[in-house]
């Protein structure tokens, strides 16, 4: 068995004449923070969508934990341990922060119609057991004070945190974060980075898309650069930072 948790071969996706994604080969090694960077429209979000099965690829295959998941439903993939967030934050607006977390954490079994209707004691116990985990997560994310607010009342940055917190309720093995720092103030950004680093230390693999280059270089074990659908560079932060192709396509010379 290889030690990669996620492996992608010849994954392509076109929109009309535009080839949004064309990735020959891509692996995530266990227990790393990998960042995916690249110019706007490079295909990063589409690549995320393909991996998480939110969109069907035109061709290619995806292996998660050495299992072929190229045709697996997105929600099944999430159950297997691959959980994502969205570039445009998606919280359940008209549910409270707490309910957002409860929904994420509750088991499929308890969400069954009959189990819910007859409100078994086991169900109540399960729901009770969630409380502690929810509280801990909310406290870690500094959302505890807001737990009874409707999610739509949160600020943009707080919504990002809630989305992250919700994902954590799933105990993911790999977390795909699409621009976790976008629209977040520097202090909160530092918080989120620290949280991400801590999660990784607990054994959660991280794959994140992020435009904040300083942050990316600071916390990533590995940086992957996409441009026009293809991976053009892949390696340690220092390697990528000085890669000519990357400077040309994305970083520019502002780095000097």
């Amino acid at each position: 068995m290889s030690n990669n948790i996620l492996s992608v071969n010849s994954l392509t996706k076109s929109f009309g004449g535009l080839e949004a994604v064309n990735v020959e080969n891509f692996q995530i090694n266990s227990n790393e923070i990998t960042s995916l960077i690249g110019p706007n429209g490079a295909g990063k979000t589409t690549f995320f969508d393909l991996i998480t099965r939110f969109q069907d690829a035109d061709s290619g295959s995806i292996f998660f934990k050495n299992k072929n998941v190229s045709k697996t439903n997105s929600y099944m993939l999430a159950r297997l341990g691959m959980v994502r967030t969205f570039q445009l934050t998606r919280v359940f607006d008209r549910m409270t922060v707490y309910e957002n977390m409860q929904f994420a954490g509750s088991s499929i079994k308890n969400e069954g119609f009959l189990n819910s209707l007859f409100n078994k004691t086991s169900l109540r116990k399960d729901e009770g057991n969630l409380i502690e985990k929810i509280d801990d997560t909310l406290k870690m994310l500094n959302l505890y004070e807001m737990r009874n607010a409707y999610a739509r009342e949160l600020s943009g940055g707080q919504k990002k945190l809630l989305e992250l917190g919700r994902s954590l309720m799933k105990d993911p093995e790999i977390l795909l974060l699409d621009e976790p720092l976008a629209g977040v103030n520097p202090k909160l950004a530092d918080n989120i980075l620290e949280i991400i680093t801590n999660l990784n230390a607990k054994g959660i693999n991280i794959l994140m898309v992020e435009h904040n280059i300083n942050a990316v270089m600071k916390i990533s074990d590995r940086v992957v650069v996409m441009a026009e659908g293809k991976i053009i560079s892949d390696g340690k932060p220092d390697f990528v930072r000085s890669d000519k192709k990357v400077i040309e396509a994305y970083l520019g010379s502002s780095d000097e």
Partner: peptide, 9 residues
């Protein structure tokens, strides 16, 4: 979509 991302059908 968020429901799906959280593993629910």
């Amino acid at each position: 979509d968020a429901v799906r991302a959280l593993g629910k059908n």
